[in-house]
C-alpha cells in the first residue's frame, strides 16, 4: 500500500470505486461543508475537494478536507499549480498528510482570467505532471524536489486528471501515459458525454497496458437542464457534448430535464461498470450533492465496500 487510503484499498481489492466531489464554500462556513458532506457520507469512497475551482476564491481545499475527515469521510485533496509555488506545494502536502489526508489530485488549474480575480498573477512554477512527480518523489524517496531529505514521508495516493476529448485525439492516450509515467496512481477523467469517443480512448489505454499500471475512474456529471447541456457543449473548454444528448434532455419535456439527466448518468455508470479498464466512476454532481444518494442507489453502486 502506498497510502493506506480508503480509495486505494477499495481499488486494490478490485472493487468498482465510486468517488464524489464537493466544492468548498465562498466563506468561512464550516456548516456548509458539513451539510454537503452529509449527502455524500456512505455513498462514495472518497470526496474530491476542489481547489479554488474555476479560479474563484473559496475555502482552501486542505481546510475543507479536514472538515471531511472530522465528519468521517475521506477527502481527495485537489491541488492546482496556479496558486502555489514549489515551496508552498510541498509544505501543504506535508501539512495535509500530517492531518490524515491520504489522496491528492494534481491539476494545472483553470486560468485566473475565468475567476473572480482575473488580474491576479498566476504561479505555474511547476506543471501538473511535474507536481505528480514531486509528490511521488516525496512519498517514495523521502526527498524534497530540491533533493534534500525530508523527515517522515507524506503517504499520498496520487491522482491526476485526463481529458479524453480534446484534439488532437491521438495524443490523449499519450498524455495519459505521460501522467502515469510521472507517477499517477489513479486518474479521474473529464466529464464524459461522448461515449463513443470514450470507448475508443479506453480501448487504446487498455491496448497500451496503461490500465495495468493505474486505476482509471470515469468522470460523470449529470446534466441538470437543457441550459446546462448547452452551456457545457458551447462554453466549457475541452468538453464534448453530442447533439443527440442535448436533444434527449430537451425531449424529456418541461420539468423533467433533471430526471432525464440523472437517468443518462445512471446509464453511463452502468456501462462503465462493464467497460474494460474502467476501475470506477468519479461523480461530479456540481452543486447537486443532495442528488448523489439517489444516483448511487439507481446506479447500483451501494452499499460502498468496507475495506
Amino acid at each position: 500500500m502506498k497510502s493506506e487510503s480508503n480509495l486505494e484499498k477499495v481499488l486494490s481489492a478490485g472493487h468498482f470505486a465510486f468517488t464524489g466531489e464537493l466544492g468548498p464554500p465562498r466563506g468561512a462556513n464550516a456548516e456548509e461543508v458539513r451539510k454537503k458532506a452529509a449527502f455524500l457520507k456512505g455513498n462514495v469512497d472518497a470526496v474530491n475537494i476542489t481547489d479554488n475551482q474555476t479560479a474563484v476564491v473559496r475555502m482552501s481545499s486542505w481546510a475543507a478536507s479536514l472538515i471531511l475527515i472530522q465528519e468521517g469521510l475521506e477527502p481527495n485533496f485537489q491541488m492546482v499549480c496556479r496558486d502555489r509555488n514549489r515551496l508552498a506545494m510541498q509544505s501543504d502536502i506535508l501539512g495535509a498528510s500530517t492531518h490524515g489526508i491520504k489522496n491528492m489530485l494534481c491539476l494545472s488549474g483553470d486560468h485566473q482570467s475565468f475567476g473572480d480575480h482575473p488580474m491576479a498573477k498566476s504561479v505555474f512554477d511547476i506543471d501538473s505532471i511535474q507536481l505528480i512527480g514531486m509528490v511521488k518523489q516525496m512519498r517514495d524517496e523521502g526527498i524534497f524536489l530540491s533533493g534534500n531529505k525530508l523527515d517522515e514521508a507524506p503517504k499520498m495516493f496520487i491522482g491526476a486528471a485526463a481529458n479524453p476529448f480534446a484534439e488532437p485525439y491521438e495524443w490523449r492516450v499519450l498524455r495519459l501515459a505521460k501522467k502515469i509515467a510521472a507517477g499517477a496512481d489513479f486518474i479521474q477523467t473529464q466529464c464524459i458525454y461522448n461515449m463513443d469517443r470514450f470507448r475508443e480512448f479506453m480501448k487504446r489505454a487498455v491496448d497500451m497496458g496503461l490500465t495495468e499500471k493505474c486505476y482509471i475512474l470515469a468522470g460523470v456529471t449529470p446534466l441538470k437542464s437543457v441550459g446546462m447541456a448547452k452551456y457545457m457543449a458551447g462554453s466549457v473548454p475541452g468538453m464534448d457534448v453530442p447533439d443527440e444528448l442535448i436533444e434527449r434532455v430537451k425531449g424529456a419535456g418541461k420539468g423533467k430535464a433533471a430526471e432525464e439527466g440523472i437517468k443518462i448518468a445512471v446509464e453511463q455508470i452502468q456501462e462503465f461498470k462493464e467497460m474494460e479498464g474502467v476501475a470506477g466512476v468519479h461523480l461530479m454532481a456540481i452543486e447537486w450533492e443532495h442528488r448523489v444518494p439517489e444516483i448511487a442507489k439507481m446506479a447500483g453502486v451501494l452499499p460502498r465496500p468496507v475495506v
Binding site: 483553470d110 501538473s128 481529458n163 480534446a166 484534439e167 498524455r175 510521472a182 473548454p237 475541452g238
Partner: peptide, 8 residues
C-alpha cells in the same frame, strides 16, 4: 512544460 492542460 509537459503538454496542454484540460482546457485545450
Amino acid at each position: 512544460y509537459n503538454g496542454p492542460c484540460g482546457g485545450t
